[in-house]
Nucleic acid binder design. Sequence first.
RNA 1: GCGCGAUUAGCUCAGUUGGUAGAGCAACCCGUUUACACCGGGAAGGUCGCAGGUUCGAGUCCUGCAUCGCGCACCA
Length: 715
Amino acid sequence: MNPKDINIDPKLLSPYNPAETEARIYKIWEDSGFFNPDVCIEKGVTNADAKPFTIIMPPPNANGRLHAGHGLVMTLQDIMTRYHRMKGEKALWVPGADHAGFETQIVYERKLEKEGRSRFDMSPEDLYKEIYNFTIESKQFMEADVRRIGASCDWSREKFTLDPTVVKTVQQTFDKMFKDDLIYRGDRIVNWCAKHQTSLSDLETEFKEKADKFYYFEYGPFTIGTARPETKFGDKYVVMHPDDKRYAQYRHGDKFTAEWINGPIEATIIKDDSIDMEFGTGVMTITPWHSNVDFDIAIKHNLDKEQIIDFKGKLLPIAGEFEGQHISKARALIVEKLDKKGLLVKVDEAYKHNVKVCYKCETVIEPQIKDQWFVKMAPLAKRALEVVEAGKIKFYPSNYEKIFKYWMENTIDWNISRQIIWGIPIPAKICEKCKKGYSDLEDTLTTCECGGNLKKDTDTFDTWFSSGQWTLLALGYPDLKDVNIYHPTSVMETGADLIFKWIPRMVIFALYLKDEIAFKDVYLNGMVNDEKNQKMSKSKGNVISPVELIDVYGADALRMALVVGNTPGTDLALSKDKIKGYKNFANKIWNITRFVLSNPEPINNEINDTDKKLIEEFDLLIADYTKDIEEYRLYMAAEKIYHYVWHRFADEILEESKLVEDANAKSSRQNTLLYILENFIKALHPFMPFLTEELWSIILRSDKQLLLVSAWPKK
RNA sequence: GCGCGAUUAGCUCAGUUGGUAGAGCAACCCGUUUACACCGGGAAGGUCGCAGGUUCGAGUCCUGCAUCGCGCACCA
């Protein structure tokens, strides 16, 4: 039928065209100012004494576009925010952008590499400036993507993780923790990436299976096994298990002389029960400077530690004739020399083991002992554990509480120093003589208590040190204007992989700085995978960008596809067929509206008993649906309303109403259809905001306000 | 090695305090009658991983096993 034949709004051309609608609607919302709860109060759509509802957006990296996972995160948070806003609460969703320290620097380094440049040839200031400009530029693309999804966040409050006030506050936190004896300077073994020239936390490394040769060498009276002969120059301890009968004749502390790579050395026998008797010969020599396990043994027995490999991966003078060689080349030469000396016993050609690599470039991590800043985790973790055990923070799904607790019960001190430019500088001074570290916010200290010269620490903070304070920082802390109203935040919604990287740190810092929980609820979403449920990755070429999907199917359809059937904590297989299904749904609603509006106007306000039952049925559904949203069962709420609208309202109620002939009954039914239509459009708004706002502007209604700030349907 | 999760229709997954199995998609048959073919109607499809246990009653609770996935740790 020609749409012109229908006596309704000419805007209602079929089919629904999301591409034409969405940008226009978003602009209307943004111009209205209603994403900002202050404006809502000012204009009288929200009561000044209404309950606050706060979500802090996990700031997307400012260095690129959004990926499908962001699409899910933005959708979930937008649904929650829109729902609470319509309920009349002071709903605040604070957007952000993350400088993403290490990540951004890597992105930028790749760019430099392509241009044939290197950060090591640039002054730190120039590099910082370039990355800053790059990030500010990229940030706009990220923000545009967030808008495309329909996020109703308060852009006027957007925070960037390198805003000057943020930097200042983070540095103050460091100073406070230093004074509270929660931060110390420590000589500890760190994960060193020789390519990126920085230390990494355990969470920034991965294990990769590698096949290497495994060598057996004669070492005095013993045969030792190793996969890394190049570290062995300084080895002067042999370690074996105290219960190993094969070596019962040797005693702890005994010394002997062994012929070794560059001549004879004196070695000492150490007995330690951390040795695996089954592995190799049950005897090993240790290199405490370049191995975590060896380091622990050395600390336990108070053994000497010596650096063999420099921070670029080259051998130090201790290597004698091999000095200056890169370890990758030196290994074979060292083996050859030992072989010539008759010390090579045998070689296992295919030894498989897991090697720690940099999670970004897969360079093999070289453990190094380095002077770094560490946070004492135990006392902080204890408090975080207490509030969770007291039930003050709830997890969705609930089993993540276990993971949180496990993590808090097994903390190790946190290395917060990073040797990168792109981050918040650590406001500290280090003594050139005795290496003692001081916090120095005002940059005034010059001399150490030992008389040595104090030098500025050139390191920056691990990003999670500032991100951990984000619930407060995003609200303007230490300015308490917003903090007093909106903190603790209502819900922290983020990817389940952040259960240990981020969630505990936010809990810890909010307790430490403000003596408050950071959030009442934690909602953890799973990964968004491709339609075969495989992880999206650039190398597989199966990455789908949310914006491309929006271009084809519309934002509302994508949002529904991301939410329906997606329980918290579980990964989602996102298929185009699924999104297409919800594009059809959008069109269905469009046509339902066309149909209802094309019916004759009711002759009065009467509703008969038959129709009252339909209204009752609908109201019950909405009550149930509301409860589902309230309790974070968004996957179920969305499915229920979908089912009602399509298969109950359209397929049955509308079809049946076509058969009603009596004038009074017809009028009663039309009143009923209008009531249900108006209210399901309201109820569906958090899930499908663009379509519903557009329809709201077309249908007859009592309330002329934007749907964005209309009252939630209630019985 | 330690921990977590999953196992339900061909596929993707729901199933909220235990009460005779649900949705979407796909496949099948039929159908253009006042919105919508981006549609409607209909039918089909499951010993709810396996084995025990608790119970009047178990997809749901308990124990064990198997398979898959994920996380953490890790061998010189």
